[in-house]
Amino acid sequence: MASDKPVLDISNLHAGIDDTPILRGIELEIPAGEIHAIMGRNGSGKTTTANIIMGHPDFEVTDGGVQLDGEDLLEMEPWERARAGVFLSFQYPQAVPGLQVGNFLRKSVAAIRGEDEAKGTEFRKKLKNAMTELDIDRSFLGRYVNDGFSGGEKKRFEILQLMLLQPKLAILDETDSGLDIDGIRTVAKGINAAVRGTDSGALIITHYSRILEHVQPDRVHVLIKGRIVKSGGPELALELEERGYEWLEEEANPPNGNMEG
C-alpha cells in the first residue's frame, strides 16, 4: 500500500537538552522504499536526531515537526511510535539481565505486530530464518538481552529485532561501528532484506562510508553542528571519505557565527 506521503518527514527541527540547543533546523524527507544516510563527525547530533525521532524523554523539541507517513510523531510516547512503525537500532544497546532474548523477542513482536504474529510455527520459522541469515546461534535465545554480549553480538541482535519487527522506518545508529568486514556484510544483508523491495524507509547513521558499500543509500546527508549542510547521491559518501568534513564546516559556521551554538 504505497502512500504518496514520505515515510519520514522532518521539518525545521530544533531540539536540545537543558536549554542547550543541539539540533538547529533539520530538514529531511525519506520517501517510501528509500535508504538515506546521515554522516557527520562525533558530536554533530546524529544520535540526538535518532533519539528525538524515537521519543527519548530527555530531549526537548523547541520547534519544527517529525511525521511518520503523515502522522505526527512528536505527540506520541516512545512505545506508541514503535507500534506506529519506528525502529531504532541503538548505538549503545542496553543490557537487561534476567530477560531472555527469546522471551523478549516474542513480547516485542506481540507488542508491535500483534499477539497473533508472535506465536505458532510461523513466528518460529521467521525467527529461525532471520537467525540463520545473521549467523546467530540458537543458544542465543536463552541468553539475557545484551547482557555480556560482545560489540558484534549486540549489533547483530539489533538487526535481528529489525528483521522481526518489520518497521516502516528503520533508523540504524552506528550499526557498523565495532564490526569487522564480515559483520558489516552480515548486518547489511539484514538491513537490505528488511527494507529493499518494501514500502519502508531507512536512515543509516554512520561516520564511515564502509557500510554504505553494502547498503547502497539513495541519498547521503551531511550533518554538522545540528544542521544538514549538504545532501547528495551515494558518491557524496566517497567524497567525504577522501576529503573529510573541513570543507563543509564553513557552511555550518558563517564567519561571525557562534562556535558553540
Binding site: 524515537m54 521519543g55 527519548h56 524523554p57 510516547e77 516512545p78 512505545w79 511510535r81 514503535a82 507500534r83 519506528v86 525502529f87 531504532l88 541503538f90 544497546p93 542496553q94 537487561v96 539481565p97 534476567g98 530477560l99 531472555q100 523478549f104 513480547k107 516485542s108 507488542a111 508491535i112 539475557y144 538481552v145 529485532q161 519487527l165
Partner: peptide
Amino acid sequence: FYLMSRGHSEEEALAMIVNGFFEP
C-alpha cells in the same frame, strides 16, 4: 527507553527489568 522503543509501555518496561532482576 530501550525497552519502550520495542513497543513496551513504561510500566511494562519496568516489569521486564524487575522480573529479569528476580529471574535467578
